[in-house]
């Protein structure tokens, strides 16, 4: 505005006596606001940032059960980089996380599409059904799957038995435990992507489908050309969040295999627990935790980059 009127901001300020506002001025005007913020600020610093900073510091010490420990430099990181089990669990964690996350995505789309096709009442009920695993405690999820897969008492082996087949040992050997963990984890959280996808699908204007139909697009074509493009942004959001959560996932895999048989399904989260509470080496546990943070952050960066690529999507 100032430009259009041919005046500078300073001229206008001068004309109407508007002084430069200092920090004290602003505090004076808004002190009550600051007062309200202070508790949150303190709480966040004290309960969130401080522990994180402390955790990072701890990785440079030999802290263990009950003691803060002394500074030992990079020893914990050296230990990490020479530890076979850590590398193994790092690799398996990546497989687990991506296997789980992408299966959750696929299943989430299918569930969301199904929900979208249903009538109101059925939608509510099927919605509840789909969501229920997500709202069950992960530990309970582990127990449920244990009951499902247990070779002796499990439901799935019994089902195989009905058809005269012998089920493989889902929680033993060097193949099935991996599959079981990924399937169970997918089951537990796919509803999250279903919720987000369902919301995205509902918000797609029906006219776009109708326009496409009039243009000669069949059902599949409409899904590809209208639905899918609208799911891209939600997909990135789901990917980032689910990846982070799946990396941190502990309860259900712990309940289901606890990292076993042997250490075959040792996720980094379970390894962290074991190092902390079996070997009581808290500093090293934190160091593994740092690796998990790095992993989540790298994934997030990759996803954000992907968004950048699609930056011009809606512009």
């Amino acid at each position: 505005m100032a430009q259009e009127q041919g005046r500078t901001a300073d001229q206008i300020r001068e004309r109407y006596g508007i002084g430069e506002r200092t920090l004290t001025d602003r505090i004076k005007d808004n002190w009550v606001g600051y007062l309200f913020i202070i508790p949150t600020f303190i709480a966040f610093t004290g309960l969130f940032y401080f522990p994180i900073a402390r955790g990072v510091f701890m990785t440079f010490t030999n802290a263990s059960l009950g003691v803060t420990g002394e500074f030992i430099g990079l020893d914990n990181y050296a230990w990490l980089l020479t530890n076979d089990l850590f590398f193994y669990s790092f690799g398996w964690t990546i497989v687990f996380v991506f296997g789980t996350t992408f299966t959750q995505l696929g299943l989430g789309v299918v569930a969301a599409l199904l929900l979208n096709e249903l009538r109101e009442v059925a939608k509510d009920w099927v919605g509840v059904l789909i969501m229920s695993p997500y709202f069950s405690a992960p530990l309970a999820g582990g127990v449920i799957w244990m009951w499902f897969l247990d070779s002796n008492f499990g439901f799935v082996p019994k089902l195989f038995g009905l058809f005269g087949l012998t089920a493989p040992s889902f929680l033993a050997g060097d193949f099935w435990p991996f599959v079981s963990l990924i399937v169970a984890q997918t089951w537990h959280d796919y509803a999250y992507s279903a919720i987000i996808y369902a919301a995205a699908i509902v918000s797609i204007p029906s006219e776009q489908y109708e326009a496409a139909a009039l243009s000669g697009a069949g059902r599949l074509r409409r899904f590809r050309d209208v639905t899918l493009p609208h799911l891209l942004i939600p997909t990135i959001v789901i990917l980032s969040l689910r990846t982070a959560w799946n990396i941190a996932e502990f309860s259900q895999p712990f309940a289901l295999t606890g990292g076993g048989p042997g250490t075959q399904t040792m996720l980094m989260s379970i390894l962290t627990y074991r190092v902390a509470f079996v070997n009581t080496n808290f500093a090293r546990a934190y160091t593994i935790g740092m690796a998990m943070v790095v992993l989540s952050m790298s994934a997030a960066v990759i996803y954000v980059k992907a968004i950048d690529q699609e930056d011009d999507l809606y512009v």
Partner: peptide, 13 residues
């Protein structure tokens, strides 16, 4: 038949 919608229904992508 071609139709023009009130919301235009353009494909955003």
């Amino acid at each position: 038949i071609a139709m023009v919608f009130q919301s235009y229904a353009l494909y955003p992508h």
